Amino acid sequence: MRNIAVISDTHGTVPDRLLTHLSEADEIWHLGDVTRPDILIPIQNLGRPLIVVNGNCDPRGTWPETRQLEREGCTFHLQHRPPPIAIPSNDAILFGHLHRPIDETMDGIRILNPGAITGPRHGSASSFAWLRFPEPGKWTWKVTAL
């Protein structure tokens, strides 16, 4: 089973307890607001593929604004800010920015937010999510508190 750790809004901080979780990932997706690219070094040192999109607090042009990724026959759109509308031909849209976990459906497409590593809001805890693929064409999403 492939395990992808999805994180967002680290805002210059990568807690050791997050690195412990990330060490179990096959791949890591960061949904923006890294703020300082050097804080990704401990994550990169884990030796897992790391995909990042630019957030509103990141230096402009450091990473792509969006990414379209296919894994195990499923398509995911990554961006930092919440989508104003569902983007067709995706199984899910993953975003950060709001600092709280979200799992909703818009026009038949899952809209997912893993929450924030730094500065959770609306009573949520610091969190990230696991995107898992138990079999090709099937995936699950689980938010995990730090």
Rank of each mutant, 00 (worst) to 15 (best):
R2S: 06
I4H: 10
A5K: 08
A5N: 11
I7H: 04
S8H: 08
T10L: 11
H11S: 14
T13A: 14
P15T: 06
R17D: 12
L18D: 04
L19H: 11
L19R: 14
T20H: 11
H21L: 10
L22Y: 14
D26L: 00
D26T: 04
W29N: 04
W29C: 12
W29H: 12
H30E: 01
H30M: 14
L31H: 01
G32F: 03
G32V: 10
D33P: 03
V34F: 13
P37I: 02
P37V: 06
D38C: 03
I39H: 01
I39A: 00
L40T: 07
L40A: 08
L40P: 03
P42R: 09
P42M: 02
P42I: 01
Q44C: 01
Q44F: 02
N45Y: 02
L46Y: 05
L46D: 06
G47D: 06
G47N: 11
R48L: 12
R48C: 05
P49V: 01
P49A: 01
L50K: 13
L50V: 15
V53C: 12
V53K: 08
G55W: 08
N56V: 05
C57L: 15
C57K: 00
D58T: 04
R60S: 03
W63G: 12
W63F: 14
P64Y: 05
P64I: 03
E65G: 03
E65A: 05
Q68V: 10
Q68N: 07
Q68F: 04
L69H: 01
L69Q: 04
E70R: 10
E70L: 08
R71H: 06
E72N: 15
C74H: 00
H77D: 00
H77K: 01
L78R: 05
Q79F: 07
R81G: 05
P82Q: 07
P83Q: 11
P83I: 09
P84N: 11
P84F: 07
A86E: 07
I87V: 13
I87E: 10
S89V: 04
N90K: 13
N90G: 01
N90S: 04
I93P: 04
G96W: 13
G96N: 02
H97R: 10
H97I: 13
H97F: 07
L98K: 02
P101Y: 05
P101H: 05
P101F: 01
I102R: 14
I102S: 09
I102H: 13
D103H: 14
D103K: 12
D103R: 14
E104Y: 03
E104F: 02
T105L: 10
M106G: 00
D107G: 09
D107P: 09
D107C: 06
I109V: 15
I109D: 02
R110Q: 15
L112I: 02
P114V: 07
P114N: 09
A116Q: 07
G119N: 11
G119C: 08
P120Q: 10
P120K: 07
H122A: 13
A125G: 00
S127A: 14
S127E: 04
W130S: 11
W130C: 09
R132V: 04
G137Q: 11
K138Q: 13
W139S: 00
W139A: 12
W139R: 02
T140S: 14
W141M: 08
W141R: 06
K142W: 02
V143C: 08
V143R: 08
